[in-house]
Design a protein around this nucleic acid. Sequence first.
DNA 1: ATAGCGATTATGTATATACATATTGAAACG
DNA 2: CGTTTCAATATGTATATACATAATCGCTAT
Lengths: 248, 248
Amino acid sequence: MSLVETDDVDGGESLSLHQRILSDIREKILSGAWAPGHRIPFEHELTAQYNCSRMTVNKALSQLAKAGLIERRRRSGSFVRQPQSQAAVLELHDIRIEVEALGLPYRYERLERIKRRSSADDRARLGLAAPGPVLALEGLHFAGERPFALEQRLINLSAVAEANEEEFLEIAPGPWLIGRVPWSEAEHRIRAMAADENIADALDIEASAPCLVVERRTWSAERPVTHVRFIYPAESHTLVARFTPSQG
Amino acid sequence: MSLVETDDVDGGESLSLHQRILSDIREKILSGAWAPGHRIPFEHELTAQYNCSRMTVNKALSQLAKAGLIERRRRSGSFVRQPQSQAAVLELHDIRIEVEALGLPYRYERLERIKRRSSADDRARLGLAAPGPVLALEGLHFAGERPFALEQRLINLSAVAEANEEEFLEIAPGPWLIGRVPWSEAEHRIRAMAADENIADALDIEASAPCLVVERRTWSAERPVTHVRFIYPAESHTLVARFTPSQG
DNA sequence: ATAGCGATTATGTATATACATATTGAAACG
DNA sequence: CGTTTCAATATGTATATACATAATCGCTAT
């Protein structure tokens, strides 16, 4: 059995050799030809089949292992892993981008700005241990004349002191923070919720109408930076997440 | 300027050299010390600083490039990339797992099973061009005595003929399909929705109560396999997505 | 039988080397 | 002055080699 005809005329694509090896094997796995648990040919066998050095084969297999498609065991060989937990990639764009993608004019409007010493609730939202100053912001993102999303944000002023100098009247805190604060970690929670009186009022929808809520907590170098809650009327927003098997 | 004291006593962790180079540089980027646009030392400079071969440095930089943290340009060098589009990883577990994680007994119950020639709506859901046989399933996932999620599923029988032999009375189609059909691509849509009469009835909630809807379309080798819609009462489910800068 | 030990084997990491390729900057030329 | 050409340079890929490390097989001694 041979993986490829190594004497083949080039099929047209110009992949490097280790990339071709990688995608050949990935194809075998994703197509089901090599079921989970199947032992992949040893490096020295692939070396012979592709007529290349072990380093080249190793590069391909190492990448497959890092991508989680295979598992490598010393002395035993490499094996196709059990179907991985389905992990999809969720792209979270700036709201301005989302709105402009709809061909509508975008506008941000501040509703509220309060500086205060963190309440217990604030600390819970931010994941803060000790009390300290925070900035609580509320604002509306518009798509044309219609409210598109309500934003409720907390900024940890101990981590981002400059935020205190900013009014955030017409520029949204999100874009402001990006670039100013390098963030190293983020956690998102997505759920559905009925609009309460205040939310319905701000978004100009009926009370108890369904909303999509996206909350994000952000850390920079282990320190909580911000917690934000985006509330979308159900009609106005759908999140899209894709799974594509790792390209190595 | 030196990145590390190469004569340092080992800090305790046993990283390989290229991994240490990688994480040193990643740290510089994530901490903000090297801002977007900053030119990373050339390979030959790092080679000198770490007293290692170019291949070792190259391995680290290549991985950073693949992870999207840096951009490499021939003849010019490697540069820190502009803050990437925020991409979070959404783990989508089997519902049984979700329920059992809550410490509740899990049960699946079929509500409906219809084999039919695909309607226009079916084809739209599956992304099918031509008509053909499909299996429409509806079922309930229970956590203890309470309905946890309603599942509405379409299976493309042209792609998964064996599904026609299965009744799906007590085993959910999700786990059944996994392992039987290798899937190569999936797309998820997440939104909020008000429960209509039928949904409210099935889930034992009030009509027009908010629900979280997760839809998934799955392909195997370019062919549509299944479309599924999970409908969760707002209280019962929160999706969690994490961003952690690629570990290379 | 079985516990321990050493040889074997596959992967993991690193080196020195070589040549390909894209891009830039400067020299040569019209 | 603008354009072409060419050499320099940094990255991209691949090789042959070497030794480290972990796991397994089979032999030996108890």
